[in-house]
Design a protein around this nucleic acid. Structure first.
Lengths: 97, 97
DNA sequence: TTATTTGGTTTATATTATAAACTTATTTAG
DNA sequence: CTAAATAAGTTTATAATATAAACCAAATAA
C-alpha cells in the first residue's frame, strides 16, 4: 500500500536542497544557504550525505581567494527525487485505491 | 521560500496513518496495523503522538472480550494534513517562483 | 596587528523513529 | 484443569537523525 519514502530525501533540509538543485544548473554553497535558511553546519553535512548517496556532485574551487563549493544534481539524484515525489503522492492523494 | 513541514506529519508512519484516516470514517488499531505494516509498538506510540497533538481521537472499548482501539481523524487533524500537503508542494512542484 | 568576515567543517547534543520486550487477558490443546 | 499459544496493546531501550554550536583557515578591514 505505502511505498517506502527514500529516507535520504525525506528530510526537510535535504528535500529543500534537492528542490532547488532540480530547477537550476548548479548552485553555490552560499546560494543554498540563502534559499534554505539552514545553518552552515547543517547545510554542510546534508550536502555531503547527498553526495555520498550519489544524488549530487560537489566541486570545490576558489573564487577571489575564497573557497567556492558548487553543487549539481546528478542523473541518479533526479531519478531518486522523481521516485520520491511519486511515492509521496500515495500518501497525500488519498485516492481510494 | 520553503514553508515549514509540520514535523508531526513529516514522519513516514504518522503520514501513513493520517493518510488512511483521512479517507475513512474510523479505523481500528489492527486495521491500521495491516495498512501501514508497522509494528504494534511503533503504531501505538505514533497514534498517541497524533492524539496528543489533537490530530486524531482514540476510543478504547472492548469487543468479544478483547480490547478495541478505534481512531478517528479530527477537524484539526484534517486541517493540519491539508496544510502539510500544501507546504510539501512547494518542495516537490519545483515550479519557478 | 588584532579584529572581523568569509566560507566552510567537525563535533556534540537533543530529538525521533523504531523495534524489542513486556503486560494483561483470552482462547485452545493436551 | 493447566500449560501453551494468541490477541491487543503499552513501555522501554536503542539506534539513527537532524540540528546547531564550536571550531578552523584564510582574507580583509580597522
Amino acid at each position: 500500500m505505502f511505498k517506502d519514502l527514500d529516507p535520504l530525501l525525506h528530510s526537510q533540509l535535504r528535500l529543500s536542497i534537492m528542490s532547488v538543485l532540480i530547477s537550476v544548473e548548479t548552485a553555490e554553497f552560499t546560494f543554498l544557504l540563502g534559499q534554505t535558511k539552514a545553518t552552515k553546519g547543517n547545510l554542510s553535512v546534508q550536502l555531503n550525505k547527498l553526495k555520498d548517496a550519489g544524488y549530487i556532485s560537489i566541486k570545490k574551487s576558489f573564487r577571489n581567494n575564497y573557497p567556492l563549493t558548487t553543487c549539481k544534481i546528478t542523473t541518479k539524484g533526479i531519478a531518486a527525487f522523481e521516485k520520491y515525489v511519486e511515492a509521496l503522492s500515495d500518501y497525500i492523494n488519498k485516492k481510494k485505491k
